[in-house]
Amino acid sequence: MSTGAREFQVPEQVYLSLAGLGAAAKRGLGDPALAELVMVRASQLNHCAFCLDMHLTAARKGGESQERLDLVAAWEEAGDAFTGRERAALALTEAVTVLTDGFVPDEVYGRAAEHFTEAQLAHLIAAIAVINSWNRLMVTRRTAPGETEWHS
């Protein structure tokens, strides 16, 4: 593949609406550290380099440990590095991200429903949908990690 960003710009109203949607999702979830773990894991699954750079940086700035960030790609085998609530959210992130292989299994949804209220769960699903949206825009555009003027 060629390198470098492709020509199109994300339309300003799309960018602003998606940013607004993301802010609403995070506000309703009320757990910024968990939101960053979800953003990192979805961006790994969707191979979004720009998004990984952005959310790993944000997570570290927010006080997340490097050790947990190193392990989030293998959270299921990471012992007690992640809480039951985080594991439920990460399992849901994977199921909601990889839709083309199947549905969202009852046990995955049910475990998330044990750890989150209905309102939190609706916002968690929204956060997963939002990072999947950014992943799609940035992968399609081939936005480079660290590129800051991409929406100008």
Partner: peptide, 8 residues
């Protein structure tokens, strides 16, 4: 994104 809400 809509698909993700609908399926989940």
């Amino acid at each position: 994104a809509w698909n993700r809400f609908g399926v989940t």
